[in-house]
Design a protein around this nucleic acid. Structure first.
Length: 515
RNA sequence: CGGGGCGUAGCUCAGCUUGGUAGAGCGCCUGUUUUGGGAACAGGAGGUCGCAGGUUCGAAUCCUGUCGCCCCGACCA
C-alpha cells in the first residue's frame, strides 16, 4: 500500500497514536515509537542516544532480572577499564581483524587553547588507548594474573558496562555507536566445562527473552560466516520482528583456547602440568529494548510486558467534574497503596498516579504510547460505586471495563500474568504465520522476493530449509537476496538434502533477512 | 566509503526558481469556556534562516567553500 492511496480514506480509519503505521513504513514507525514512548532520543553526538527516564527504568529492570540470573548461576560482577591498550587488541589476530574497523581511539590526554578560542588536542599518548568494543582482552589480562591453579577454576565473571563500536549506520537501541550491555567472561579447566557454560548462559538468555520479555526466540548456532571474531563456536538467540526480519538478541561464545593462548591464561593442573584455560564470553545489550519494541509495539505505540514494565499500572484520576476532587484523589491513593504491596515477580506491583493538570485524553494517550499494561480511570462515579474503570494495553483502547475495586485488587496479579501471556502468544503466532519449511531453491527465492513498493513492505520471514553448510553458497545467497543463515537450531531435526546443492544436510537451518 | 536528500522558532516544515522589514501548523505561556477520552476561542513568548567568504544599495533567497544530520547500500550486537 502506498501512502497516497491511504490519504483520501484517512478520515474513516481509526486514528493511530503513531504515524506512520507499521504497514505504511516500518522503519519510520519504529523510530517514532521509540521517541513517542519516551524511551530515548537521538543525541548531539553522532550515532549515540539519550536514554530517557522511561527507557532507563526499563533497562534497570532488565538488569535487575538478568543480574539475578547470573548470580544464581554462580557468576560475580566486576568492573574493568573503559580503555584498552592497543597492544592488547593486537594479541588475537582474528579478534583485531573483526573489530579494528570500528574502534574509537584515544590518542591525546589534554586540550590546549588554540587560535579563535578553539581547543586543540595536545599531549600525545605514547601508546593509543582503544575504547573497548568488547572486553575479552582486558579481562583476559586480569584472568592471566588471577588464575594460577586448577583450584582457581572455574572463574565466572560478569560486568555491566558501556562499549563503543563505530558503526557506519545507527538506529536507536538496535545499533548505536555506544551501547550498554553486560558481558560475561569465564575460564574453565576443560573444553567440556566451557562448552557447558556457553550453553547454560544461552539458556539463561532464552529464558529471559521468553519468560520476561514475552519474546519467543530460536536458540541456535551461528555458521562460520556469522561467528564472533576469535570464537570456536557462537550460540545465539534469534527473534522475529514484526517486519519479519530476524534480530540477533543475545550471543554466547565458546572461545576454546584461542584467547587463553594469545593472553597466556594458564593454570597448573592437579597433575602439576601447566595448561591453557578454556574460556567463554556472552552478552546482551540495550538492543533487547529495541527487540521488545519491534516484537510487541503496535500502531498506538509501545506495549510493555508486565514483568519488565517500569510501572504495571497507571491511575488516571478524573477530577475535573468531581464535587470533591480531593476525595477522588484520596480514593486513587488508597487503591495505589493496596496495589503496591502485592508481590509480583520479585518486586511489588509498581503504580503511578498521574495527577498532572492535563486534559484526560491527552494524558491517557501518553500512557497508551508508553505501553503501560493497565490504565485505571478513576472518577467520582467509580468512587461512588467503589469500582475502577480498567483499560488493558493488550486490548483495544476502547475495550474498557468496570471492575469492583476489591475484585480488581485481588485479581490484578492474574490480569497482569494474562497480559504477559497474551503478548507472548501473539508474538509466537506472528512468528508461526511467517515461518515455513522450504524444499527447493526456486521456492526459497520466491519466498524472499521483495514485493513492489516504496518503502519496501514487510515480506518473507523465517525459512526452514536444508543446507549443507557450504560457505560459498551461503555468501552467494547473502549477496543475491540479502538473506543469511540466522542459526542452525539446537533443537533436534530430521536429516535431508540441501536445497541449493543436493548434498546431505543434518537438519533444517533458519534463513531470514536480518538487522 | 559510494548514491540520494536536508540544515529557517522547542518540533514538523513553507518561503528560495524571479534578492526588497521572518512565515504556518503543532507545542509552550496567560485568560475564558470546557473536560468519562487525542478540546474551542482570544491574547502572548520564541528565530542574527548551520557556519565562513563573495556578488549586490540590499541576501534565508544568487555564487564559492566548509561543517553537520538523515535516508539507501557496503560493515555490524
Amino acid at each position: 500500500m502506498c501512502i497516497s492511496s491511504i490519504l483520501p480514506t484517512m478520515a474513516k480509519q481509526a486514528k493511530t497514536a503513531i504515524t506512520p503505521t507499521r504497514a505504511e513504513n516500518y522503519p519510520e514507525w519504529y523510530q517514532q515509537v521509540v521517541k513517542r514512548s519516551d524511551l530515548a532520543e537521538n543525541s548531539a553526538v553522532r550515532g549515540c542516544m539519550v536514554i530517557k527516564p522511561w527507557g532507563c527504568a526499563l533497562w534497570e529492570n532488565y538488569q535487575q532480572v538478568l543480574n539475578g540470573m547470573f548470580k544464581a548461576t554462580g557468576h560475580k560482577n566486576a568492573y574493568f577499564p573503559l580503555f584498552i591498550p592497543k597492544r592488547f587488541l593486537e594479541k588475537e589476530a582474528e579478534h583485531v581483524e573483526g573489530f579494528a574497523k570500528e574502534c574509537a581511539v584515544v590518542t591525546h590526554h589534554r586540550l590546549e587553547a588554540g587560535p579563535d578560542g578553539t581547543l586543540v588536542p595536545s599531549g600525545e599518548l605514547e601508546e593509543p588507548l582503544i575504547i573497548r568494543p568488547t572486553s575479552e582482552t582486558i579481562i583476559g589480562d586480569a584472568f592471566s594474573r588471577w588464575i594460577e591453579s586448577y583450584r582457581d577454576l572455574p572463574l565466572l565473571i560478569n560486568q555491566w558496562a558501556n562499549v563503543v563500536r563505530w558503526e557506519m549506520r545507527t538506529r536507536l537501541f538496535l545499533r548505536t555507536s555506544e551501547f550498554l550491555w553486560q558481558e560475561g567472561h569465564t575460564a574453565h579447566a576443560s573444553s567440556e566445562e566451557a562448552m557447558e557454560e556457553t550453553e547454560r548462559m544461552l539458556d539463561v538468555y532464552a529464558d529471559f527473552a521468553e519468560n520476561w520479555m514475552a519474546m519467543p526466540v530460536i536458540t541456535g548456532e551461528k555458521t562460520a560466516a556469522e561467528r564472533f571474531p576469535g570464537a570456536i563456536r557462537t550460540l545465539c538467540i534469534e527473534a522475529m520482528m514484526q517486519d519479519r526480519k530476524a534480530l540477533q538478541s543475545g550471543t554466547s561464545h565458546f572461545l576454546g583456547q584461542n584467547f587463553a593462548k594469545a593472553q597466556d591464561i594458564t593454570y597448573q593442573s592437579e597433575e602439576g602440568k601447566l595448561e591453557h584455560c578454556w574460556t567463554t564470553s556472552w552478552g546482551v545489550s540495550t538492543r533487547l529494548i529495541g527487540a521488545m519494541v519491534m516484537t510487541h509495539a503496535d500502531d498506538d505505540g509501545l506495549r510493555l510486558p508486565p514483568r519488565l514494565a517500569p510501572s504495571q499500572i497507571v491511575i488516571l484520576p478524573m477530577t475535573s467534574r468531581a464535587d470533591d476532587p480531593e476525595a477522588v484523589l484520596n480514593f486513587c491513593r488508597k487503591i495505589a497503596d493496596d496495589l503496591r504491596v502485592i508481590p509480583y515477580h520479585g518486586r511489588h506491583i509498581e503504580v503511578e498516579i498521574d495527577e498532572r493538570d492535563l486534559r484526560g485524553g491527552e494524558k491517557n494517550w501518553q500512557w497508551v504510547r508508553r505501553g503501560v499494561p493497565i490504565r485505571l480511570e478513576v472518577g467520582q462515579r467509580d468512587m461512588a460505586a467503589d469500582s475502577v474503570f480498567m483499560a488493558r494495553r493488550d486490548q483495544g483502547h476502547k475495550d474498557k471495563q468496570t471492575i469492583e475495586r476489591t475484585a480488581f485488587v485481588s485479581r490484578v496479579h492474574d490480569i497482569l500474568e494474562e497480559i504477559q501471556a497474551n503478548l507472548y502468544d501473539q508474538a509466537i503466532a506472528f512468528r508461526k504465520n511467517h515461518s515455513c519449511e522450504i524444499d527447493s531453491e526456486e521456492d526459497f527465492r520466491a519466498y524472499f522476493a521483495p514485493p513492489s513498493g516504496e518503502p519496501t513492505p514487510p515480506h518473507g520471514g523465517f525459512a526452514w530449509a536444508h543446507f549443507c553448510g557450504d560457505e560459498d553458497v551461503e555468501k552467494r545467497i547473502n549477496d543475491e537476496l540479502s538473506v543469511t543463515v540466522r542459526c542452525i537450531p539446537l533443537a533436534d531435526g530430521e536429516p535431508g538434502t540441501c536445497i541449493f546443492t543436493g548434498k546431505p544436510s543434518l537438519k533444517r537451518v533458519v534463513w531470514a533477512k536480518s538487522y
